[in-house]
Design a protein around this nucleic acid. Structure first.
Lengths: 167, 167
DNA sequence: TTAAACTTTCAGAAATTATTGAAACTTTAT
DNA sequence: ATAAAGTTTCAATAATTTCTGAAAGTTTAA
């Protein structure tokens, strides 16, 4: 396999993986592209590499910036914007995890709390509902907290975790 | 809020969360429904509760069984099939994690390995590609292994992990 | 100012994903 | 063997998500 083919395969794979985890494929591909780039890239370069429209590129770059994993850059003497990506994978994973927690997990937790707090007639059906949603709330909260704890130090958290595990 | 409303809200929320993580909404809802059920349910009961067609119910139940988080049950004297869900959340999370690893992470890892193994002319661009995809491969592999390690004991792995973390 | 360079927005189109429902298939009981 | 009961499949349709491209908006330079 030569470089060009490997690069395409890598970008496709990363896009597909993103897709499977509920992330826009193009968004994942833009990030993949920026991760292996030696230089900061302009929107035209991104459009050209991935064969996508300006609108699509613009919106997805903006999303990546909102997520905190792509950064706006500038070149002296150039008017247009350039972009770079977080390349430190420990930091990248933490940022994504925190963001997903904030956007998706915590709102779901609030609702689990809410629905598990109904006061019940004491039918089995209602008791079981409360019991199971309470368990679900407690479990998800615990998992969310563990993730937070584990990633407290953005630098090298994964290696640090492994060390804790083997002890 | 009374029971009926809470139940609907819970099922909607679980479906939406599933959706955001790349899981079919109906599939997540069926699982949610089975998790709070005191009894095993027939396909008709599931169709009725979620207002979905037989085909949809059948296909998604089958998927849940393939995932290993819903089980086929039978009632003596009844010909049709009934279904129940894994209710132990530690076990549930492990099963989902292992399955996603097998289906999504490991295939991606194989490709990362492959693309990072190209032999290069020594241009910066190609060196950077190899370096970054190697890092990505190593990181994802490590994370995948940690997950495996942490969930080695299906029972109470989350609590056990927390204990390790505070030590 | 003005206008050129660049970026964002968003309505419509395209692509993808999910759902339906009925036919085909399978299993069980007689 | 036959039929009734139940399940699966899948082509057609619906719903949702993504993408395009051009108009509108913004910024910078002269």
């Amino acid at each position: 396999m030569e470089f060009k083919e490997a690069k395409t395969k890598y970008i496709q794979t990363w896009g597909a993986l993103g897709s499977q985890w509920g992330i826009n494929k193009t968004m994942a591909q833009i990030h993949a592209l920026l991760m292996i780039s030696t230089e900061i890239l302009s929107i035209e370069e991104i459009m050209d590499e991935l064969q996508i429209s300006r609108g699509n590129a613009s919106m997805n770059i903006r999303s990546l910036i909102d997520w905190g994993i792509v950064f706006k850059e500038s070149k002296t003497g150039e008017r247009k914007e350039f972009f770079s990506a977080e390349k430190d994978l420990d930091k990248l994973a933490v940022t994504i995890a925190r963001e997903r927690s904030k956007r998706e997990i915590k709102p779901a937790l609030r609702i689990l709390k809410e629905v598990s707090s109904i006061k019940t007639n004491s039918s089995n059906v209602e008791k079981q509902f409360i019991e199971q949603t309470e368990k679900l709330y407690a479990f998800v909260l615990k998992a969310d907290n563990v993730l937070d704890k584990v990633t407290q130090y953005k630098e090298n958290w994964l290696s640090k975790l492994i060390i804790k595990l083997v002890k």
